[in-house]
Amino acid sequence: MHTSQYQMAEPTDKSLQWLEQMQLIRTYELHLAAMQSKGVPGTCTSVGQEACAVGVMAALDKRDRILTNHRSAAHLLARGASPGRLLAEVLGRIDGYCGGFSGSLHISAKELGVILTSTIVGGELSMAPGVALAQKMGQGEAGGIVTVFFGDGAACEGIFHEALNLAVQWQLPLLFVCENNQWQAFVHRLETMPDNAIINWARGHGLMVDTVDGNDVHAVFESATQAVSAIRSDSMPRFLELCTYRQRGHFEPDDQAYVDRQELAHWLERDPIKRLCQRLLQQGMLTQQSLNNMQQAIDEQIQAAQAFADASPWPDAAMLTRHVYA
């Protein structure tokens, strides 16, 4: 994070830092989407879900480990990933977090604690209990917990129920974070499940649950902080459902012809960045000028990231068969 005149109003208040992270995520992902026309490989964005990633990450420590999925850029950036290394990875270049082998879909960054990213919907849920078991058996940093991010789509996989059941039965220090973004690839959630909420399933497995507005970063942070603190103290899993909305298509490029315009408009009104800006402007913690300065600095950061990625070499041909085995 660079410093400038929009430094947080009070040292204890992270709101401005969160806004900056959310703006960085949004700008990065819109940049990726815009790059589609220039031959950049397709990608799954989390535009509209930034408050989920930023609010939960703010509640976690460096010692905690995180599993995520194909819609991972927000989680990685909120955890402090370098936009340049992310873009290099998307472009398949050696300076990417995975040496260019992963591309955009399954980026892990062990140095940031973001591990075992899987693009198989539900894959992250299958592995998370094992990471938490290792943590519980003394393999992680002391006091650390494990957080797994997934969506309502993964909640419709059988592995969701297997993972929840095992986490409760084995008392694993695991935070389940369901970003219910209403869309499961190209199908609306209302078509795939009879209930309106994922937490009812979680509650049925004996989990302690909470649901909050996933487009309100403060609400997400407060709920996540409570859950994280509870897990640290009793090593029992918790479940958060964050109600949010996938503002863009499943996979860029996507014309979203299948999306109900009224529903989209409703959620665009509740955009998490817009709401946070309004709140901070009203509270006098932000001015239009400082907001503009923030955006300008982020734009420059993304341009520098693109230049870094473009300058990064392609992997050597030998990489095709490297790292198959340890």
Binding site: R65, L67, I115, L116, G123, L125, S126, M127, A128, P129, G130, V131, A132, L133, A134, Q135, M137, Q139, G140, G158, I159, E162, A163, N165, L166
Partner: peptide, 15 residues
């Protein structure tokens, strides 16, 4: 599925 997945997650995490 979750037994194998748990083993995979645990293996990557030190067990």
């Amino acid at each position: 599925a979750v037994v194998a997945g748990t083993a995979v997650g645990a293996a990557a995490s030190g067990l």
